[in-house]
């Protein structure tokens, strides 16, 4: 475990906490894409199939449980909580997220490191995570007033991805035989999707203005 990896995991954790804080205390999910949250729940379910069979460390297991638990509870809140679900921007959140799932599954069946069920599901989760933010980015673009917590949530998610890339660079130079093309390419694609958001996030921060993404 290097500092970039730990910082990446912590930013990921904070992003989830920020979102849960917004939903749990303000009882609002305005500006949050349920489509993206459902994709993340699917991503973690597919990726952590080995949670009880492949023990890596206590840290690893606890983090997996947190990401699984938080992603499914966020989906539950947005769909079924009687107050929270009223604030969901259903009419704005129209991205056809189902159309992302099938291509990712096909790609995982075609391009993987090993053709086993667990390995294909793991690869599928990487491809799906790479594009899972898209519905959220589209929703942000449509939202007139992006509140601070939603902006911070997306910023932290992007920061987590950027830190993971630094982690891979570090591991490449410090660990022999550390080559993972599938992880790297899908991770890079995922991070690039945040480039536009980052630009406007820093602009609004620099000019001390409210965040607003041009259509």
């Amino acid at each position: 475990m290097n500092i970039f990896r730990l910082a990446g995991d912590m930013t990921h954790l904070f992003s989830v906490l920020v979102l849960l804080l917004k939903i749990h205390t303000i009882k609002s999910c305005a500006g949050v894409s349920l489509k993206t949250q459902e994709l993340y729940a699917l991503v973690f379910a597919a990726r952590y199939l080995d949670i009880f069979t492949n023990y890596i460390s206590l840290y690893n297991t606890v983090m997996k449980l947190i990401f699984l638990g938080s992603s499914f509870s966020i989906v539950w809140y947005m769909r079924y909580h009687k107050i929270v679900r009223r604030s969901y921007d259903k009419d704005q959140d129209t991205f056809r997220h189902y159309f992302l799932i099938l291509p990712c599954l096909l790609l995982a069946l075609l391009i993987n490191e090993k053709f086993t069920f667990k390995e294909v599901m793991w690869t599928f989760s990487l491809y799906l995570e790479a594009v899972a933010i898209l519905p959220q980015l589209v929703l942000l673009q449509r939202t007139r007033n992006i509140d601070n917590l939603t902006g911070q949530y997306v910023f932290l998610l992007g920061a987590y991805r950027a830190l993971y890339i630094l982690n891979w660079v570090y591991r490449y130079f410090t660990e022999p035989h550390f080559v993972h093309w599938i992880t790297w390419v899908s991770g890079l694609v995922q991070t690039l999707l945040y480039a536009d958001f980052f630009y406007y996030y820093f602009q609004s921060w620099k000019n001390n203005q409210k965040l607003h993404l041009p259509a």
Binding site: N60, W122, H177, H180, T183
Partner: peptide, 10 residues
């Protein structure tokens, strides 16, 4: 050599 299916990242 580390095994390829040892996914130690989250």
């Amino acid at each position: 050599v580390e095994s390829d299916d040892d996914h130690d990242e989250l």
